[in-house]
Write a protein that binds this DNA or RNA. Structure first.
Length: 903
DNA sequence: TAAGTGGA
DNA sequence: TCCACTTA
């Protein structure tokens, strides 16, 4: 919203006083509403198309014209003097649609927030107000609008600017276009009439004839006076017969300039933009792009940030903090990995804008100025005091770091990162800095900025205390402000339940799992790596021999050259970005029918991937202190509510094929322990059965049938015992496709059949499972109406494209609408089970630890003696965690490694 | 379909 | 940044 004083449009006025820009508000509201295709709504389902279009127009005007005087005119409610005169005036106009009228208050608020005065007077239409301003304000006037009805107002002193067409219409233009003075357009319209506004006019006369007549006689009255002279019979008769109508019409279309408008120029003065208010409105309306363009206006003062260097002061602050409503807390460490770093300092904020930084382990010249480590216990006692509510941003990190110092955080009120995620799980990131920028309008100091004078390998511990203070205090401060932002919003929605009953309690469970880690057999992996290296070497030589030259097989570019240029193999398809020809699995599979090279490359790739991603990478990530692998479970990444795992990702460890199993064998329990794997059987399909209430599906699950076999029997129209393995495989793919929201196209590709055939399969499926079809139609309709979908527990996912005019985008949103409630509900179910299991484990004080979650599977490390007890607990909790219309079923397996525990 | 990782 | 590949 740069307020540069540029007048890019040359305004054709002799008068060089600043013009008044008079905006035809009502016409823009309608234009935005009807002109923008598709549908736009915010996360709550409020339609926003007109607000958006209007806002863009206003922005364009303010940017390009930078007006000193400006006003938006709106139609007032109720009848105008025109109705008194002619009761059918505008009788053909339908009333304002509901989904437009709800937007009007927002449009007005935004206008005010931009500092633009609003004019609205009972009994008058916007056009009349504009006419009054144009004729009675002695100033240059720019009417902002595009409506032809306003053309008669144009004069030496009045022009019209249409920001949408970017067209400036002045007197000269009108004369060129119509050949008459602007005011005469009234007479033209009176003769021609207007069916939209129900202005009668004279039958048989259109704009062309009207113009000709007015040009000839000068005015409507003169035309009527000379009606007798007109040669054409029909025209003459009509003019004489309908002279009265024509005169009434003139009264109707004549713009009334008598409206009691404010005459003081000060009323029209542009006021400053209220960025805070705009931000609030844009946030509510979900105008993300506009939000980003708002300047960061909020300046947070760092003046009240205190560096605490004195033990006595620590005690004082801790005592004060105990009485705080909520304490925002942030730990500074020297690594990103909470399983490795040490605590360098602690920041607190409980009375914003005050905040405190407690440095403990900084390095360098100032080290001796810091707090003695004993002071940390004072903070620890505060952190362990469950009566003091804490919030943090990504608090799991702090939880783990603290736990390594033997400190257990109690009284967790929540996590602002999680709050942001629940509020909109499709956001790209939930980083403190981005949220601060976008939601608070405050630009934070970046980590990069703070550490820029440091050498590459140096950590936060090397940051000078003053600088560290500002950075750390700002983190705690902004966290507090985000807490104030999100909490009321979460409480307002169904999200509060998901937050307090699922995601918040899960934080601690995940922290435990990450801290537990998992053991891998590094010696075994080393040996395996050597074996693969050998195989790769042989394959490599063979590939070079077949290709006739040496090249980098890992480079898809070089491989593409060999396959398509040198060997002239058919180019099957392009890469998704269309920048090159694809060399992916599917393509190589097909090409292997023509040549032996693709097969070899396929084999090489599988092995190379296995080696680099798993066999070689995993041992490097073993924590030297614990001797185990500690993944990080991210709770705020996926759009559906699933978890994700990284550093390393333990949710995509291979399972298929011989080599895959060999890698799973490297994951082993501690001595004296066994692995117990518990996975939900067909949880997605069971959730689908619950949602759809499909009788066949529900019955199949209650009878414990093999669901893919049942599906095969249904779609092939045979009995279950007649189903061949091939049929079952196809049915399985279809079930899979339904749950993952696969398109008919995707299904065709997966089954390697024609698209029509795939479509026929899907149709057959819907015939046999009509409830599923009903569910899909219903959920898509609901999504269209609300603009979002939700899980059984109220977790939401916005679907902005659900009404998009772009078919691809819309269909994608539709598949998402079908899939998210299913996958998200399944994710909620397993999260709930994890929370309960963790709780029972702690109550019973068992030695068993939950190690991993892989979407529908949990992996435990169980002392041999506890096996039977734990099996019982796990099954009972997982199967009983919610009651659906179908039973939940869990498969348990025990093993001395992860491969065994899968069978 | 979605997410993470490795290699160029 | 793009591509390919692993899991669910």
């Amino acid at each position: 919203m740069a307020q540069k004083n540029l007048f890019p449009k040359k305004l054709p006025f002799r008068d060089d006083r600043a013009p008044i820009f008079v905006i035809d508000g009502s016409s823009f509201v309608y234009r935005a509403y009807y002109a923008i295709r598709g549908h736009l709504s915010n996360r709550k389902g409020l339609p926003t198309k007109a607000v958006f279009g209007f806002t863009q127009m206003l922005l364009k005007l303010l940017r390009e014209m930078n007006p000193e005087y400006v006003v938006v005119c709106f139609d007032a409610k109720g009848l105008t003097f025109r109705h008194d005169m002619f009761k059918d005036y505008k009788a053909n106009r339908p009333p304002m649609p509901d989904d437009l009228s709800v937007q009007i208050p927002y449009i007005k608020e935004i206008t005010r927030a931009f500092g633009v005065p609003i004019l609205e007077i009972e009994g008058y239409e916007a056009d009349d107000l504009i006419a009054a301003i144009a004729s009675r304000m002695d100033r240059p006037i720019v009417i902002v609008g595009g409506d032809k009805d306003l053309f008669p107002l144009i004069s030496e002193r009045v022009v019209i600017w249409d920001p949408m067409k970017d067209e400036l219409i002045d007197k000269k233009k009108i004369k060129e276009r119509y050949g008459v003075e602007p005011q005469k357009l009234i007479d033209v319209r009176a003769l021609a009439g207007d069916s939209i506004d129900n202005v009668p006019g004279v039958p048989g006369i259109g704009e062309k004839t009207a113009l000709r007549l007015i040009k000839e006689y000068g005015s409507l009255e003169e035309v009527l006076n000379h009606a007798e002279e007109i040669k054409q019979k029909r025209l003459r008769e009509n003019l004489i017969k309908h002279a009265g109508d024509a005169l009434i019409s003139k009264k109707l279309v004549e713009l009334n300039d008598k409206a009691p408008i404010p005459l003081e120029i000060d009323f029209y003065r542009k006021r400053p933009v209220n960025t805070l208010k705009l931000r609030e409105l844009f946030l509510e309306l979900d105008f993300k792009k506009l939000l980003k363009e708002l300047p960061a206006t909020k300046t947070i003062s760092y003046e009240q940030y205190k560096l605490v260097l004195d033990f006595e002061k620590v005690k004082e602050i801790v005592e004060k903090a105990r009485k705080a409503k909520v304490l925002a807390l942030d730990l500074e460490s020297d690594t990103k990995d909470p399983m490795r770093g040490k605590i360098v300092g602690v920041s607190l904020c409980f009375e914003p804008p005050k905040a405190y930084y407690f440095p403990f382990r900084h390095e360098g010249l100032e080290a001796q100025k810091q707090l003695p480590w004993e002071a940390f216990s004072n903070l620890a006692s505060l952190i362990e005091d469950s009566s003091v509510k804490k919030v943090g941003h990504n608090i799991k990190y702090d939880l783990i770091l603290l736990a390594r110092y033997g400190v257990t955080l109690k009284g967790l009120e929540g996590d602002t990162m999680l709050a942001s995620y629940l509020f909109d799980p499709t956001r790209r990131t939930h980083g403190l800095d981005e949220l601060s920028e976008e939601l608070l309008g405050h630009t934070m100091i970046s980590y990069k900025e703070v550490t820029k004078e440091l050498a590459k390998e140096e950590s936060f511990a090397r940051v000078p205390l003053e600088k560290a203070k500002v950075y750390a205090c700002e983190d705690a401060h902004v966290t507090y402000l985000l807490y104030e932002y999100f909490w009321p919003r979460l409480k307002e929605e169904t999200l509060w339940k998901v937050f307090t009953e699922i995601d918040r309690p899960l934080i601690e469970v995940l922290a435990y799992m990450e801290m537990a880690g998992i053991k891998i057999d590094t010696a075994y992996l080393k040996e395996f790596s050597r074996e693969i290296a050998e195989k790769l070497k042989k394959l490599e030589e063979k590939i070079y021999a077949v290709a006739g030259e040496r090249f980098n097989i890992n480079s898809s570019k070089q491989l593409g050259y060999i396959l398509f240029e040198k060997l002239k193999l058919p180019k099957v398809k392009k890469t998704p970005k269309k920048t090159a020809f694809s060399t992916d699995n599917e393509v190589l599979e097909e090409l292997s029918l023509h040549h032996e090279l693709p097969r070899l490359v396929l084999e090489y790739r599988t092995l190379a991937k296995l080696k680099s991603t798993y066999v070689d990478a995993l041992p490097k990530m073993v924590n030297p202190e614990t001797g185990r692998l500690h993944t990080s479970f991210n709770q705020t990444v996926t759009a559906t509510g699933r978890l994700s795992s990284s550093d390393p990702n333990l949710q995509n460890i291979p399972v298929r094929g011989e080599e895959g199993l060999k890698i799973r064998q490297a994951f082993v329990p501690e001595k004296g322990f066994l692995f117990l794997s518990a996975d939900y059987s067909q949880i997605d399909l069971r959730v689908l059965a619950h949602y759809s209430e499909d009788e066949t599906l529900i019955k199949a699950f209650w009878q414990g049938e093999d669901i893919h076999r049942r599906t095969a029997a249904e779609i092939f129209g045979i009995s279950p015992d007649e189903v061949t393995p091939e049929m079952r495989r196809m049915a399985k793919t279809i079930n899979f496709g339904i749950v993952y929201g696969m398109s008919p196209y995707g299904l065709a590709k997966e089954l390697k059949i024609g698209r029509r055939e795939a479509k026929a399969f899907i149709e057959r499926y819907f015939e046999r499972y009509p409830g599923v079809k009903r569910y899909m139609e219903q959920i898509v309709a609901e999504a269209r109406e609300k603009g979002y979908v939700e899980t059984l527990f109220g977790r939401k996912r916005p679907l902005p494209d659900i009404n998009s005019p772009n078919r691809t985008a819309r269909e994608f949103a539709e598949r998402t609408a079908i899939n998210t409630p299913i996958q998200g509900t399944a994710a909620d179910i397993i999260k709930l089970a994890m929370i309960k299991i963790h709780q029972v484990f702690r109550e019973k004080g068992v030695g068993t630890r939950m190690l991993l979650q892989v979407h529908d599977e949990l992996l435990f490390e169980v002392p041999e003696k506890e096996i039977e007890e734990i099996k019982k607990i796990v099954r009972q909790i997982m199967e009983g965690v919610v009651e659906l219309k179908v039973p939940l079923k869990v498969n348990l397996a025990i093993g001395r490694n992860w491969a065994e525990a899968k069978a």
